[in-house]
Amino acid sequence: MDTLGLLNYAIFMGVLIGIYALLSLGLNVQWGYAGLFNAGVAGFFAVGAYLSALFTAPPVPDRIMGWELPTGVGWFAAMAAAALIAWPIGKVTLRFRSDYLAIATIGVAEIIRLVLRTEDLLSGGVRGITGIPRPFGDLPYEWSQLAYLGLTWGMVVVIYWALERQLAAPWGRMMRAIRENELAAAAMGKNVEARRLEAFILGAAIMGLAGAVYVHFMRAITPEAIDPMMVTFLVWIMLILGGSGNNRGAILGAVIIWVIWSSSELLTDRLPAEIATQAKYIRVFVIGLMLQLVLRWRPEGLLPEGTHVRRSS
Protein backbone atom coordinates (compact mmCIF):
# COMPACT_ATOMS: atom_id res chain seq x y z
CA MET A 1 0.00 0.00 0.00
CA ASP A 2 1.23 3.47 -0.82
CA THR A 3 1.24 6.27 1.71
CA LEU A 4 -2.09 7.67 0.63
CA GLY A 5 -3.70 4.26 0.73
CA LEU A 6 -2.26 3.68 4.19
CA LEU A 7 -3.54 7.03 5.34
CA ASN A 8 -7.00 6.29 3.97
CA TYR A 9 -6.97 2.96 5.75
CA ALA A 10 -5.92 4.64 8.98
CA ILE A 11 -8.78 7.14 8.71
CA PHE A 12 -11.23 4.34 7.99
CA MET A 13 -10.00 2.46 11.05
CA GLY A 14 -10.19 5.64 13.09
CA VAL A 15 -13.87 6.11 12.30
CA LEU A 16 -14.71 2.51 13.14
CA ILE A 17 -12.77 2.76 16.40
CA GLY A 18 -14.74 5.88 17.25
CA ILE A 19 -18.00 4.01 16.60
CA TYR A 20 -16.90 1.15 18.81
CA ALA A 21 -15.79 3.65 21.44
CA LEU A 22 -19.37 4.97 21.48
CA LEU A 23 -20.71 1.44 21.89
CA SER A 24 -18.22 0.79 24.65
CA LEU A 25 -19.22 4.01 26.44
CA GLY A 26 -22.87 3.02 26.14
CA LEU A 27 -22.14 -0.38 27.62
CA ASN A 28 -20.15 1.26 30.37
CA VAL A 29 -23.22 3.18 31.48
CA GLN A 30 -25.09 -0.11 31.75
CA TRP A 31 -22.42 -2.45 33.06
CA GLY A 32 -19.80 -0.18 34.53
CA TYR A 33 -22.16 2.16 36.35
CA ALA A 34 -25.17 -0.02 37.02
CA GLY A 35 -23.94 -3.62 36.75
CA LEU A 36 -26.46 -4.50 34.02
CA PHE A 37 -25.62 -7.29 31.63
CA ASN A 38 -26.68 -6.39 28.09
CA ALA A 39 -25.99 -9.29 25.75
CA GLY A 40 -27.81 -7.64 22.86
CA VAL A 41 -25.59 -4.65 22.12
CA ALA A 42 -25.80 -5.43 18.41
CA GLY A 43 -29.58 -5.17 18.49
CA PHE A 44 -29.60 -1.59 19.76
CA PHE A 45 -26.80 -0.76 17.32
CA ALA A 46 -28.84 -2.17 14.42
CA VAL A 47 -32.00 -0.33 15.45
CA GLY A 48 -30.09 2.94 15.52
CA ALA A 49 -28.50 2.26 12.15
CA TYR A 50 -31.80 1.41 10.44
CA LEU A 51 -33.85 4.17 11.99
CA SER A 52 -31.39 6.88 11.01
CA ALA A 53 -31.09 5.39 7.52
CA LEU A 54 -34.86 5.31 7.02
CA PHE A 55 -35.25 8.89 8.22
CA THR A 56 -32.61 10.30 5.92
CA ALA A 57 -32.39 8.10 2.81
CA PRO A 58 -34.32 8.94 -0.36
CA PRO A 59 -37.64 7.11 -0.79
CA VAL A 60 -37.85 3.98 -2.93
CA PRO A 61 -40.86 1.87 -3.87
CA ASP A 62 -41.54 -1.25 -1.75
CA ARG A 63 -39.93 0.26 1.31
CA ILE A 64 -41.38 2.46 4.01
CA MET A 65 -40.19 5.92 4.98
CA GLY A 66 -37.21 7.42 3.15
CA TRP A 67 -38.01 10.92 4.30
CA GLU A 68 -34.73 12.62 3.36
CA LEU A 69 -34.65 14.43 6.67
CA PRO A 70 -31.46 16.06 7.96
CA THR A 71 -28.86 13.69 9.41
CA GLY A 72 -29.21 15.23 12.85
CA VAL A 73 -32.88 14.24 12.93
CA GLY A 74 -31.88 10.70 11.98
CA TRP A 75 -29.35 10.51 14.79
CA PHE A 76 -31.84 11.75 17.27
CA ALA A 77 -34.43 9.26 16.04
CA ALA A 78 -31.83 6.49 16.35
CA MET A 79 -31.23 7.30 20.00
CA ALA A 80 -34.94 7.60 20.72
CA ALA A 81 -35.76 4.29 19.04
CA ALA A 82 -33.07 2.37 20.90
CA ALA A 83 -34.19 3.92 24.16
CA LEU A 84 -37.80 3.06 23.38
CA ILE A 85 -36.94 -0.60 22.87
CA ALA A 86 -34.80 -0.68 26.02
CA TRP A 87 -37.54 0.73 28.21
CA PRO A 88 -40.05 -2.17 28.28
CA ILE A 89 -37.29 -4.79 28.39
CA GLY A 90 -35.70 -3.09 31.36
CA LYS A 91 -39.05 -2.55 32.99
CA VAL A 92 -39.83 -6.27 32.90
CA THR A 93 -36.43 -7.76 33.74
CA LEU A 94 -34.71 -5.29 36.08
CA ARG A 95 -36.74 -6.52 39.02
CA PHE A 96 -34.62 -9.66 38.90
CA ARG A 97 -30.94 -10.45 38.85
CA SER A 98 -29.01 -9.28 35.81
CA ASP A 99 -29.01 -12.83 34.35
CA TYR A 100 -32.62 -12.31 33.30
CA LEU A 101 -31.81 -9.06 31.55
CA ALA A 102 -29.00 -10.84 29.72
CA ILE A 103 -31.35 -13.57 28.48
CA ALA A 104 -33.95 -11.04 27.42
CA THR A 105 -31.44 -8.88 25.56
CA ILE A 106 -30.20 -11.92 23.63
CA GLY A 107 -33.82 -12.40 22.65
CA VAL A 108 -34.30 -8.79 21.64
CA ALA A 109 -31.20 -8.80 19.46
CA GLU A 110 -32.35 -12.04 17.87
CA ILE A 111 -35.81 -10.67 17.12
CA ILE A 112 -34.44 -7.44 15.68
CA ARG A 113 -32.30 -9.57 13.39
CA LEU A 114 -35.31 -11.70 12.38
CA VAL A 115 -37.43 -8.63 11.64
CA LEU A 116 -34.72 -7.05 9.49
CA ARG A 117 -34.18 -10.26 7.59
CA THR A 118 -37.87 -10.88 7.07
CA GLU A 119 -39.47 -7.49 6.51
CA ASP A 120 -38.29 -6.19 3.16
CA LEU A 121 -40.60 -3.25 3.62
CA LEU A 122 -38.27 -2.06 6.35
CA SER A 123 -34.88 -3.18 5.21
CA GLY A 124 -35.19 -2.87 1.46
CA GLY A 125 -34.69 -6.62 0.99
CA VAL A 126 -31.49 -7.88 -0.60
CA ARG A 127 -30.64 -4.49 -2.01
CA GLY A 128 -30.65 -3.05 1.45
CA ILE A 129 -30.90 0.68 2.00
CA THR A 130 -28.65 2.80 -0.15
CA GLY A 131 -28.08 6.47 -0.76
CA ILE A 132 -27.87 7.31 2.92
CA PRO A 133 -26.46 10.84 3.12
CA ARG A 134 -23.18 11.46 4.86
CA PRO A 135 -22.33 14.77 6.49
CA PHE A 136 -19.48 16.35 4.50
CA GLY A 137 -20.23 13.76 1.82
CA ASP A 138 -19.87 16.34 -0.96
CA LEU A 139 -16.20 16.95 -0.24
CA PRO A 140 -13.49 15.09 -2.18
CA TYR A 141 -13.07 11.52 -0.92
CA GLU A 142 -10.08 12.00 1.40
CA TRP A 143 -11.45 15.20 2.89
CA SER A 144 -14.84 13.69 3.36
CA GLN A 145 -13.32 10.73 5.19
CA LEU A 146 -11.22 13.02 7.32
CA ALA A 147 -14.18 15.25 8.16
CA TYR A 148 -16.24 12.24 9.17
CA LEU A 149 -13.38 11.07 11.38
CA GLY A 150 -13.54 14.44 13.09
CA LEU A 151 -17.31 14.24 13.43
CA THR A 152 -17.19 10.71 14.88
CA TRP A 153 -14.58 11.55 17.47
CA GLY A 154 -16.40 14.77 18.16
CA MET A 155 -19.37 12.65 19.15
CA VAL A 156 -17.12 10.45 21.29
CA VAL A 157 -15.81 13.52 23.10
CA VAL A 158 -19.31 14.96 23.59
CA ILE A 159 -20.66 11.69 24.97
CA TYR A 160 -17.58 11.21 27.14
CA TRP A 161 -17.91 14.69 28.55
CA ALA A 162 -21.63 14.31 29.16
CA LEU A 163 -21.14 10.98 30.90
CA GLU A 164 -18.36 12.31 33.10
CA ARG A 165 -20.59 15.20 34.15
CA GLN A 166 -23.41 12.82 34.82
CA LEU A 167 -21.10 10.57 36.83
CA ALA A 168 -19.91 13.44 38.99
CA ALA A 169 -23.47 14.58 39.56
CA PRO A 170 -25.65 13.12 42.33
CA TRP A 171 -27.04 10.66 39.78
CA GLY A 172 -23.61 9.11 39.25
CA ARG A 173 -22.86 8.91 42.94
CA MET A 174 -26.19 7.26 43.47
CA MET A 175 -25.47 4.74 40.72
CA ARG A 176 -22.21 3.76 42.35
CA ALA A 177 -23.83 3.51 45.74
CA ILE A 178 -26.43 1.16 44.30
CA ARG A 179 -23.83 -0.99 42.62
CA GLU A 180 -21.59 -1.18 45.68
CA ASN A 181 -24.37 -2.07 48.04
CA GLU A 182 -27.84 -2.51 46.70
CA LEU A 183 -29.46 -3.22 50.05
CA ALA A 184 -27.94 -0.21 51.76
CA ALA A 185 -28.91 2.03 48.85
CA ALA A 186 -32.47 0.75 48.90
CA ALA A 187 -32.59 1.26 52.66
CA MET A 188 -31.51 4.87 52.19
CA GLY A 189 -34.63 5.31 50.12
CA LYS A 190 -32.99 5.43 46.72
CA ASN A 191 -35.20 3.94 44.11
CA VAL A 192 -32.84 1.27 42.85
CA GLU A 193 -35.01 -0.06 40.07
CA ALA A 194 -35.73 3.35 38.55
CA ARG A 195 -32.05 4.35 38.59
CA ARG A 196 -31.07 1.12 36.90
CA LEU A 197 -33.75 1.52 34.26
CA GLU A 198 -32.40 5.02 33.53
CA ALA A 199 -28.91 3.65 33.12
CA PHE A 200 -30.12 0.89 30.83
CA ILE A 201 -32.07 3.30 28.63
CA LEU A 202 -29.27 5.87 28.51
CA GLY A 203 -26.74 3.19 27.52
CA ALA A 204 -29.07 1.85 24.83
CA ALA A 205 -29.56 5.33 23.39
CA ILE A 206 -25.79 5.76 23.06
CA MET A 207 -25.61 2.39 21.29
CA GLY A 208 -28.34 3.54 18.92
CA LEU A 209 -26.34 6.68 18.20
CA ALA A 210 -23.30 4.51 17.41
CA GLY A 211 -25.43 2.63 14.89
CA ALA A 212 -26.49 5.89 13.26
CA VAL A 213 -22.90 7.16 13.05
CA TYR A 214 -21.96 3.84 11.46
CA VAL A 215 -24.70 3.82 8.84
CA HIS A 216 -23.99 7.35 7.62
CA PHE A 217 -20.34 6.46 7.29
CA MET A 218 -21.10 3.35 5.22
CA ARG A 219 -23.92 5.11 3.30
CA ALA A 220 -25.66 1.74 2.82
CA ILE A 221 -26.77 -1.13 4.94
CA THR A 222 -28.03 -4.70 4.53
CA PRO A 223 -29.26 -7.03 7.26
CA GLU A 224 -26.11 -9.14 6.87
CA ALA A 225 -23.83 -6.17 7.58
CA ILE A 226 -24.14 -6.61 11.32
CA ASP A 227 -22.95 -9.91 12.84
CA PRO A 228 -24.84 -9.75 16.14
CA MET A 229 -22.68 -12.06 18.18
CA MET A 230 -19.43 -10.51 17.01
CA VAL A 231 -20.47 -6.89 17.54
CA THR A 232 -21.82 -7.61 21.01
CA PHE A 233 -18.86 -9.64 22.03
CA LEU A 234 -16.23 -7.24 20.73
CA VAL A 235 -17.81 -4.40 22.69
CA TRP A 236 -17.83 -6.49 25.83
CA ILE A 237 -14.17 -7.42 25.59
CA MET A 238 -13.34 -3.78 24.83
CA LEU A 239 -15.01 -2.58 28.00
CA ILE A 240 -13.71 -5.35 30.24
CA LEU A 241 -10.17 -5.00 28.98
CA GLY A 242 -10.22 -1.21 29.11
CA GLY A 243 -11.70 -1.10 32.58
CA SER A 244 -15.40 -1.21 33.33
CA GLY A 245 -16.63 1.78 35.26
CA ASN A 246 -14.00 3.99 33.67
CA ASN A 247 -15.01 5.96 30.57
CA ARG A 248 -11.42 6.46 29.47
CA GLY A 249 -10.92 2.74 29.88
CA ALA A 250 -13.92 2.08 27.68
CA ILE A 251 -12.39 4.20 24.90
CA LEU A 252 -8.91 2.73 25.37
CA GLY A 253 -10.34 -0.79 25.18
CA ALA A 254 -12.09 0.05 21.92
CA VAL A 255 -8.82 1.28 20.40
CA ILE A 256 -6.77 -1.74 21.49
CA ILE A 257 -9.28 -4.45 20.61
CA TRP A 258 -10.21 -2.94 17.26
CA VAL A 259 -6.56 -2.64 16.25
CA ILE A 260 -5.90 -6.26 17.26
CA TRP A 261 -9.09 -7.45 15.61
CA SER A 262 -8.62 -5.75 12.27
CA SER A 263 -4.87 -6.27 12.01
CA SER A 264 -5.39 -9.97 12.63
CA GLU A 265 -7.85 -9.83 9.76
CA LEU A 266 -5.18 -8.34 7.53
CA LEU A 267 -2.96 -11.21 8.59
CA THR A 268 -5.46 -13.97 7.94
CA ASP A 269 -6.40 -12.48 4.57
CA ARG A 270 -2.87 -13.16 3.39
CA LEU A 271 -3.07 -16.83 4.23
CA PRO A 272 -3.74 -19.34 1.46
CA ALA A 273 -7.44 -19.76 0.77
CA GLU A 274 -7.59 -23.31 2.18
CA ILE A 275 -6.73 -22.20 5.69
CA ALA A 276 -7.99 -18.62 5.52
CA THR A 277 -11.55 -19.56 6.47
CA GLN A 278 -10.34 -21.58 9.42
CA ALA A 279 -8.06 -18.77 10.49
CA LYS A 280 -11.15 -16.55 10.62
CA TYR A 281 -12.68 -18.78 13.29
CA ILE A 282 -9.42 -19.06 15.18
CA ARG A 283 -9.51 -15.27 15.50
CA VAL A 284 -12.91 -15.55 17.13
CA PHE A 285 -11.57 -18.22 19.44
CA VAL A 286 -8.69 -16.00 20.47
CA ILE A 287 -11.05 -13.12 21.27
CA GLY A 288 -13.13 -15.46 23.45
CA LEU A 289 -9.99 -16.68 25.16
CA MET A 290 -8.83 -13.14 25.71
CA LEU A 291 -11.98 -12.37 27.70
CA GLN A 292 -11.26 -15.38 29.92
CA LEU A 293 -7.69 -14.23 30.47
CA VAL A 294 -8.76 -10.69 31.38
CA LEU A 295 -11.43 -11.99 33.75
CA ARG A 296 -8.84 -14.20 35.37
CA TRP A 297 -5.76 -12.03 35.55
CA ARG A 298 -6.89 -8.44 35.27
CA PRO A 299 -10.58 -8.26 36.10
CA GLU A 300 -10.39 -4.54 36.84
CA GLY A 301 -9.10 -3.86 33.31
CA LEU A 302 -6.22 -1.69 32.14
CA LEU A 303 -7.66 1.51 33.62
CA PRO A 304 -9.45 0.50 36.81
CA GLU A 305 -12.35 2.60 37.94
CA GLY A 306 -10.54 4.02 40.96
CA THR A 307 -7.63 5.50 38.98
CA HIS A 308 -9.92 7.99 37.36
CA VAL A 309 -13.01 8.67 39.39
CA ARG A 310 -12.50 8.88 43.10
CA ARG A 311 -15.01 6.82 44.97
CA SER A 312 -16.86 8.84 47.51
CA SER A 313 -16.47 7.01 50.76
Binding site: D99, A102, Y281, I282, F285, L289, L295
Partner: peptide, 28 residues
Protein backbone atom coordinates in the same frame (compact mmCIF):
# COMPACT_ATOMS: atom_id res chain seq x y z
CA UNK B 1 -14.43 -22.15 38.97
CA UNK B 2 -11.93 -19.36 39.62
CA UNK B 3 -14.83 -16.89 39.45
CA UNK B 4 -16.72 -18.71 42.20
CA UNK B 5 -16.19 -16.08 44.89
CA UNK B 6 -16.86 -13.13 42.58
CA UNK B 7 -20.26 -11.76 41.52
CA UNK B 8 -22.10 -14.48 39.60
CA UNK B 9 -22.69 -12.21 36.62
CA UNK B 10 -18.97 -12.48 35.77
CA UNK B 11 -19.43 -16.20 35.28
CA UNK B 12 -22.37 -15.43 32.98
CA UNK B 13 -20.02 -13.26 30.98
CA UNK B 14 -17.31 -15.91 30.94
CA UNK B 15 -19.89 -18.39 29.64
CA UNK B 16 -20.71 -16.05 26.76
CA UNK B 17 -17.02 -16.14 25.86
CA UNK B 18 -16.95 -19.92 26.18
CA UNK B 19 -19.96 -20.10 23.83
CA UNK B 20 -17.97 -18.24 21.21
CA UNK B 21 -14.90 -20.41 21.77
CA UNK B 22 -16.80 -23.70 21.54
CA UNK B 23 -18.50 -22.59 18.35
CA UNK B 24 -15.27 -21.54 16.70
CA UNK B 25 -13.68 -24.89 17.63
CA UNK B 26 -16.56 -26.67 15.90
CA UNK B 27 -16.22 -24.34 12.89
CA UNK B 28 -12.50 -24.96 12.60
Amino acid sequence: RHLETRPKILTVMASLGVALMLRSVVQV
